[in-house]
C-alpha cells in the first residue's frame, strides 16, 4: 500500500507543479491546495500505513498507528487552510486592482 500511495503522491506533486507553472492565478491557488494534500499524505505514508489500530487507547489494541505524523498533519491542515485563505484573498485583491488574473500581465513594473 505504501508503494501505491507513494506513486499517487508523486502524481499529486506532478499535477501541482504543472499547475504552478500555468499562467492563471486560480490554477496556482488550486495548486497550493493540492500541494498541501500531497504533503499531508506524504507525511502519513512515510510512517507506514494501516499498522495497528487508530491511535486511541480505548481500543486497547496491541499496536497503534503512529500518532506523531497525525498530530503533525492535523496542525498542517489548519495552517494550510490559513495559507489558502491568504492566497485566495490576495489573488482576489490582485484581480480587483489590476483587472487581470493572468500572471503574464502581473509581472511588476518596468523600472524594477
Amino acid at each position: 500500500m505504501e508503494l501505491l500511495m507513494s506513486i499517487v503522491i508523486g502524481i499529486i506533486f506532478s499535477v501541482t507543479i504543472y499547475l504552478f507553472m500555468s499562467k492563471n492565478l486560480l490554477r496556482v491557488v488550486a495548486a497550493t491546495l493540492l500541494l498541501s494534500h500531497g504533503v499531508h499524505l506524504l507525511l502519513i505514508t512515510m510512517s507506514g500505513l494501516q499498522r495497528g489500530a487508530a491511535p486511541i487507547l480505548s481500543f486497547d489494541a496491541d499496536a497503534y498507528t503512529d500518532p506523531l505524523p497525525q498530530a503533525l498533519v492535523l496542525t498542517a491542515i489548519v495552517i494550510s487552510f490559513g495559507v489558502t485563505a491568504i492566497l485566495l484573498v490576495m489573488s482576489y485583491r490582485t484581480y480587483k486592482v489590476h483587472k487581470t488574473d493572468d500572471l503574464e500581465e502581473l509581472r511588476g513594473s518596468a523600472d524594477e
Binding site: E2, S6, I7, G10, F13, S14, V15, T16, G48
Partner: peptide
C-alpha cells in the same frame, strides 16, 4: 519538470519509508 519532480517525491517517500 513536473513528472520529474513527482518521481523524485515518490522515490524520496519510498526511501524514507
Amino acid at each position: 519538470i513536473s513528472v520529474g519532480f513527482g518521481l523524485m517525491i515518490t522515490l524520496g517517500s519510498l526511501s524514507v519509508f
